[in-house]
């Protein structure tokens, strides 16, 4: 059988320009395992976690557990994140644990791309395209939500007061990165 060296995943996006000037950093994150997990309340039977991933958090919160993270994006929808090489193992464990229950687990590791946006004015850069209230009161650290950024759907998560994760589908990544980088220009010169 012919083999091709695919040990490493190819870069997901072609950056239009070097990310983030000045005090704003826009950094493409390494590839990771991503599983879209869906289950209704009845199927979860009151459990607080599934294979170490929290499912009892409020809608639009992000919970971490070691190398794992769970973002609850809707009443019956979670995005599970893990290391790139762990996704199949994790999927198996979840399937086993949820066996017999009505649920859906779909691997979307290659669908999504994440940028980390950080810097003192990072909220203003996000606010260039996001209609959300980004104050700490309205968007506290640990919040994660699907939303709109300019003309792209994104999942926006706040890791610290000045650190954000912006996740979009791969074909929107060049657009999202370009829009963020353009907004960051204001803070490179101010």
């Amino acid at each position: 059988m012919l083999e091709v060296n695919l040990a490493k995943r190819a870069p997901a996006v072609f950056l239009a320009e070097q990310a983030g000037r000045g005090p704003i950093d826009i950094v493409l994150q390494p590839t990771m395992g991503r599983l879209s997990f869906r289950a209704k309340e009845a199927a979860l039977e009151g459990r607080s976690e599934v294979s170490g991933l929290a499912v009892d958090g409020a809608i639009n919160t992000r919970r971490e557990n070691g190398d794992l993270a769970a973002m609850r994006l809707g009443p019956d929808e979670w995005m599970f994140l893990c290391d790139d090489g762990e996704v199949d193992n994790l999927a198996e464990r979840i399937a086993e644990e949820m066996s017999g229950k009505a649920f859906s687990l779909v691997d979307v590791s290659h669908r999504d791309v994440t940028f980390e946006v950080s810097g003192a004015a990072s909220d203003a850069v996000i606010a260039s395209g996001s209609p959300l209230d980004l104050s700490l009161e309205a968007f506290p650290v640990g919040m994660a939500t699907r939303t709109i950024f300019a003309k792209s759907d994104i999942v926006l998560a706040r890791l610290s007061q000045t650190t954000w994760q912006v996740t979009c589908w791969r074909s929107f990544a060049t657009y999202v990165q370009g829009y963020l980088a353009d907004a960051a220009k204001d803070f490179a010169v101010a």
Binding site: S128, A150, S171, F172, T174, Y175, Y179, D182
Partner: peptide, 14 residues
């Protein structure tokens, strides 16, 4: 900012 390459996302395949 929504002009030229940012007017509309241009989605490209792998």
């Amino acid at each position: 900012p929504s002009r030229e390459e940012r007017f509309e996302p241009v989605r490209k395949t792998a």
